[in-house]
Amino acid sequence: MDISTQSTQSPLPTPQPPPTEQRRAARGATRPGDRIFLGLSRGSGILLLVIMAAIAVFLTYRAVLAISEDEGNFLTTFEWNTNTVPPVFGIAVLAFGTIVSSIIAMVIAVPIAVAIALFLTHYAPRRLRGPIAYVIDLLAAVPSIVYGLWGAMVLVPHLTGLFGWLDAYLGWTGIFSWEGGAPRSMFTVGILLAIMILPIITNVSREVFRQVPQMHEEAALALGATRWEVIRMAVIPFGRSGVISASMLGLGRALGETMAVATVLSPDFIIHGSLLNPGGGTFAQNIASKFSEATEFGRDALIASGLVLFVITLLVNGAARAIIARRKEYSGANA
């Protein structure tokens, strides 16, 4: 942004509020090529805004069509029957499942991702840092359907032991009681989502930790701090807001993840007190699973649930970006 500011604005005397429109008009009058090019590039910028607006408008329109016919309360109904004659459906189960699975994913992924970011910036042997970061970049590119296939075929069978152990020792809490059966529950989904969002949180946190001023760390070392104290006193305070926004980017991804949840979860329209019993669902998973047998009205109902998901991810991502934007020195390029 600095670059263009210097190159085009410096020759202009700007005593009053910058008369951008006049300036563009003047330049356009002398150079038709410039006018066309500016029109094209500004046009595509505007097109993006139009698309965003169109997404909101069209989803809302179809959602209103569906919700106006809904006999249950859209927010609190525990059912999804769009084909019955008075259709009764609601998002309570989906909202619960989406939030719970994302929270599990965050609880598992954030500490590990921050630790890996610290590992890459402060602990790993210098020669290994480049290759490890490269591998993590590649893992961020693995398609979600492959994670889903792996989760269903490899992770699920391996979790039986862990679920039994949790049930035996923590079952009394109620959250971790398990009635047996395939471990295709919200907890499994949370673990898989954690694995999937690990690379993005790690990458962004690493970028932040890398920008910690060398002086701060050296000052701490000069005062006799151990490596852990350097991290606690210089690195973490500097990187805290960056880590928070990285986590929220990961959260946004976890909330909207579709295929991995659809392959791993055995869905059911119930809310379990226990995380380990199969059942529940998420917004995205419900859309993917219910879509193929949905009527046109059923599709409108799914669009209505998609609109809720859209709003939630919009809020989460907007908050993450606002935190990043407050720190001007961090560009957020690789997010």
């Binding site: 989803l59 909330l255 909207g256 859209f310 970006r321």
Partner: peptide
């Protein structure tokens, strides 16, 4: 920035 975070299924629904 906000578009980067749109879930793919929402783009499909649009």
């Amino acid at each position: 920035d906000v578009m980067t975070g749109i879930p793919s299924i929402v783009a499909g629904l649009f």
